[in-house]
Design a protein around this nucleic acid. Structure first.
Length: 619
RNA sequence: GCCCCGGUGGCUUAGUUUGGUAAAGCGACGGUCUUGUAAACCGUAGAUCGCGGGUUCAAAUCCCGCCCGGGGCUCCA
């Protein structure tokens, strides 16, 4: 237990808001104050659970001691989580706090307590004399000895490595003093600096502005913060990314697709349990003519796990891959929202693979890794590979991890945990790096050996026994976040570019005068027949201006059509990638573009193909 | 949620320090020009200065509260 004791003229608090672990309290506990008081900020730690009685006794002695020394008139107990990284469970903590309060009262000390698990505002006036601020650490007897020997029991320790595709394992002894030459590539280095070493950049990501100016996404004041609107071009990019996610899940992985409700009854214990394992708060919905409270789902797992719990599974059915493209809602704190990067409503494609055991699960894991790697490469964004793995599993399966790295041809940052402390034994993340060098988590795969039991998802073995599944969770990450990463990747370039298969307009034809319109239309029809998104700037404007506007839209190919072209049947093509102009025939252009669209989803132009007919959504 | 910064026609901004008729460019609309590789010319319309309250003879400007956006912190007591 950690104690912070402050001898104060005045101490006062008032509850502001509940947390997930809030204790039920009466009206009178909602505020309180005291004068000439010893304010005790208390943090119950996990080791205290070994011997709560002893902890209570020791802390009461400590508080009384200090009280007598400073001559305060009373004690104010204030639960305060911020003194330790290693907190005790809420239940035990409340128990300990209440018993300290009782004991002090028994000893005829004027005592008050503020409630556990609430956000509170407080005021304090510290006296400032030498004894007025004290901190104390209290631990159970047997632990004390261990501490003295320098043994930290039950603590999960992390070791860090860099693994390279050519099977080198580089140990990073001291993460704070990583030498530059130890980290092989720029992207991985950027990730380590941004996330692991917490050297965040404080620039505004340029996509926050460009998502609006490119008419992709925008804020909607009439909604809740973090709920964006998509313009036609944004919706197209969204749809294409969704198509691609569908294709990987359904066509390449043979996953079966399902859909489940977005609203759930909060009184269901399994829903609440999942709610607590997520730290995010959620939207609450109160239907008319009913007392129930519903929640908007904050992950796709709810409905799926319930479906699978009821399903009858045999070992013959496994591995079973299930795909769901779901809308999720997380009530993120206000200050955490940012552009397309962090939202309160977003879309997640999830694939869960239900398997018989760890070894089948691990095979699924590797398969998913490779598919997601293909997908990530198709968007041309830079990403770092980060593994987190329990030590025992790591030692046994290092070779397979190297195999995956060979596939992605990237080095990885690996955190090896001495023991399992989460539901997974191994997971990895693809971490995107934005143009301000901050990281964003994209795809993840997690091998889960706990949830099947927790949610009672079982199958029948060959021998006729019922056993829990091993679940492989995975997601490419939210579509919105991919849009963010793709825009940010563009901003890293001198001339921003997004992959051609995602460009709303792939080629724009510019007419020099209205006489060229008929010829331009013929070319447009030919390109359109080939499934290329083409439009014509038919407005009565000068060429320079049409060029300028097309460039500002990041259009990859701009074809100029005037009298010369019409006479000799060619197009003057301005290629963004190469920053040059060249004469092309229509067939050559078709070939050039189609080659780059190979294997990617396709959709038609999301707006009228004549610019004169097209509205402006953002000035 | 806390702290810092910002919000002025659809867009980009000036004006706020020192209170005194809201200013410009782009865009839209009408017209002239028939245009050759990053902004033609003339004209017209368009602003509850984020919202609400206060101070003042007078508020975009000063004060208070709220909303929205950005960044940082916090992200279970």
């Amino acid at each position: 237990m950690k104690l912070l004791l402050i001898h104060s003229d005045h101490f006062e608090y008032e509850v502001t808001e509940k947390t997930n672990v809030a204790e039920e309290i009466s009206e009178e506990l909602k505020k309180g104050k005291m004068e000439e008081v010893l304010a005790c900020f208390i943090t119950v730690e996990s080791i205290d659970e070994k011997d709560p009685d002893q902890i209570v006794e020791k802390s009461v002695n400590e508080i009384e001691d200090t009280l007598n020394k400073v001559n305060a008139e009373g004690v104010f107990l204030y639960p305060y989580a911020h003194l330790s990284q290693d907190l005790g469970s809420p239940e035990v903590s409340v128990k300990i706090l209440k018993r300290i309060e009782e004991k002090l009262r028994d000893n005829e000390i004027k005592t008050k307590r503020s409630p556990f698990g609430w956000y509170k505002a407080f005021e304090i006036k510290c006296k400032g004399h030498p004894l007025s601020e004290l901190s104390r650490k209290i631990i159970p007897e047997e632990e004390e000895e261990d501490e003295e020997k320098g043994e930290e029991k039950r603590k999960v320790e992390s070791k860090y490595f860099i693994l390279t595709p050519n099977e080198r394992e580089i140990k990073l002894d001291n993460l704070d003093q990583v030498k530059e030459e130890e980290i092989p590539t720029g992207t991985l280095k950027d990730y380590i600096y941004s996330e692991e070493l917490e050297k965040k950049s404080s620039e505004k990501p340029p996509s926050v502005d460009s998502m609006r100016h490119l008419e992709i996404a925008d804020y909607e004041e009439a909604s809740d913060p973090g709920n964006l609107r998509l313009y036609p071009k944004g919706k197209l990019i969204f749809n294409l990314l969704e198509d691609w996610s569908d294709e990987i899940a359904v066509d390449r992985l043979d996953a079966v697709e399902i859909d489940t409700p977005i609203l759930y009854d909060w009184s269901q214990p399994d829903i609440q349990e999942q709610g607590e394992s997520f730290h995010e708060r959620h939207y609450r919905v109160f239907p008319p003519e009913k007392d129930d409270e519903l929640v908007l789902r904050f992950a796709g797992d709810f409905g799926l796990f319930r479906m699978l719990k009821e399903a009858i599974l045999s070992y013959r059915n496994l591995p079973l891959r299930i795909y769901e493209f779901s809308k999720s809602f997380r009530y993120e704190k206000r200050g955490e929202l940012s552009g397309l990067k962090r939202l309160r409503t977003f879309h997640m494609p999830d694939i869960h693979s239900f398997t018989t055991n760890l070894s089948q699960g691990w095979k699924e894991y590797q398969k998913l890794f490779k598919e997601y790697d293909d997908l990530a490469k198709g968007t041309n964004i830079e990403y770092a590979v980060v593994f987190r793995v329990v030590e025992e599993f790591y030692e046994e399966n290092k070779d397979k991890i190297f195999e995956m790295l060979k596939y992605s041809d990237k080095p990885a940052f690996v955190e090896v945990l001495s023991e399992r402390k989460h539901y997974w034994v191994v997971k990895h993340e693809f971490q995107g790096i934005d143009s301000t060098k901050n990281n964003t988590q994209l795809a993840t795969v997690q091998l889960d050996i706990e949830d099947a039991e927790r949610y009672d998802i079982t199958y029948t073995t060959k021998e006729g026994n019922e056993e829990g599944c091993t679940i492989c969770h995975s997601s490419i990450g939210s579509i919105e976040r991919w849009m963010y990463s793709i825009l940010e990747e563009a901003h890293k370039m001198e001339k921003p570019k997004i992959p051609i298969w995602l460009c709303p307009t792939q080629i724009r034809l510019l007419t020099i005068s209205e006489d060229n319109l008929e010829y331009a239309n013929k070319i447009k029809e030919k390109l359109k027949e080939e499934g290329i998104r083409v439009d014509i700037d038919d407005r009565n404007e000068r060429l320079g201006k049409k060029i300028r506007e097309a460039e500002k839209e990041w259009i990859p190919y701009i074809g100029v059509i005037g009298d010369d072209e019409e006479k000799e049947d060619f197009i003057n093509l301005r290629i963004r990638e190469q920053e040059k102009e060249e004469k092309f025939e229509v067939e050559e252009i078709v070939e050039l573009i189609k080659e780059k669209l190979e294997g990617k989803p396709n959709r038609k132009l999301p707006l009228p193909d004549m610019l004169s007919k097209r509205p402006k959504f953002v000035g």
